[in-house]
Design a protein around this nucleic acid. Structure first.
Length: 323
DNA sequence: GGTAGACCTGGACGC
DNA sequence: GCGTCCAGGTCTACC
């Protein structure tokens, strides 16, 4: 692939909320380590191909230009028109949650306010978050990273595959080329439903619905169970559901030094009541604890990059590092 | 409604 | 080198 020439393309600027911190916003959730995201810590820049008009791929370099006020700079490797520019800005705003307000969260959790922990990284589209969530289930983190690299390489042409690109792939081909295993059926089925209009992902971002309604609807997607639906809830911006999984159990047992009962139901309700005081931001309080514990072990997240730190996040490493 | 078993893959571990 | 287990789960058949 040719090296993108950012000098040849358009430069877009985005106004930033107060106290915005790009490295903290990017390096706040594991998806920043997944392809096609490429965080270069020494440059404090996120490189990431996005989809423009007609799904053409536009390579972008996202950074902050200091000044009064500071602005987000989005350098593109090609010229973009006004409509395309709006679309790119919207995608970047979604990734960095620039439209969300966290005043209530900061009041609930002063330590998080001091640490500037608020805008957790996500994908430019809910579709990408959905597929990334499926690739994260029942698998080690390095394997999730590999699946995303292969999806971008073999299906997305370097970017993250669009619904139509994935809808065209045969399940067996996806399984063989991208090593996603049984997840291939789930990925292709979701993509085809989106393309056919049977699955309208924009309805999940409808703020009129309750989290319970959104959660139930998400579990109706083939391949999305309780954990994945709760994770998608936070990616949609609803933080009052906890995606409890084996990693939560480990964190609760080790990092919080909490004796855990054998019965999963008892454990679930114990974890939920532990974070209940942060409602409706239970997930953020949980993730703050977990992310803090990861950084204690592996150093400042702002210096993590996929090729250097990606393999740290296996249950085996996490368990060993603790002892 | 509760639960056991299957499902892809690859790393870790024991032998 | 090889076999087994299991990982940031989910689905389905069966009871």
């Amino acid at each position: 692939m040719a090296i993108p020439n950012y000098a040849a393309g358009s430069t877009l600027t985005i106004a930033l909320p107060k106290r915005f911190d790009l490295p903290r916003a990017v390096c706040s959730y594991g998806y920043f380590l997944l392809a096609p995201n490429n965080w270069v810590s020494s440059e404090r820049t996120l490189y990431r191909p996005l989809h423009g008009s007609g799904d053409r791929l536009i390579h972008t370099a996202i950074t902050v230009k200091d000044g009064a006020p500071p602005r987000l700079i989005l350098r593109c490797d090609r010229r973009v028109d006004r409509g395309e520019g709006r679309s790119l800005k919207a995608q970047v705003s979604r990734m960095l949650r620039l439209d969300e307000s966290f005043g209530v969260w900061h009041k609930l959790h002063p330590q998080a306010r001091r640490a500037r922990f608020d805008r957790m990284f996500r994908s430019p589209s809910l579709f990408e978050d959905l597929i990334k969530t499926i690739t994260g289930c029942n698998v080690t983190w390095p394997n999730t990273m590999r699946m995303n690299v292969l999806l971008c390489e073999h299906v997305g042409g370097g970017g993250f595959p669009t619904p139509s690109q994935l809808a065209r792939v045969r399940v067996d081909t996806l399984k063989r080329r991208c090593k996603v295993g049984y997840r291939a059926e789930r990925i292709v089925r979701a993509a085809r439903q989106v393309v056919r209009g049977e699955l309208d992902l924009s309805t999940f971002e409808d703020q009129c619905k309750t989290t319970d309604q959104v959660f139930r609807k998400l579990t109706g997607i083939y391949g999305i169970g309780e954990y994945a639906a709760a994770n998608l809830c936070q990616l949609i911006g609803r933080y009052d559901r906890l995606p409890i999984d084996s990693e939560t159990y480990r964190h609760f047992r080790q990092d919080l030094d909490t004796p855990t009962p054998d019965n999963p139901k008892t454990l679930h309700s114990r974890i939920e009541s532990h974070y209940a005081r942060y409602a409706p931001y239970q997930f953020m309080a949980y993730w703050f604890d977990l992310w803090w514990a990861y950084q204690k072990r592996f150093g400042d997240a702002r210096r993590w990059e996929a090729h250097t730190h990606g393999t740290n996040f296996t249950a085996n490493r996490l368990t060993q590092e603790e002892s």
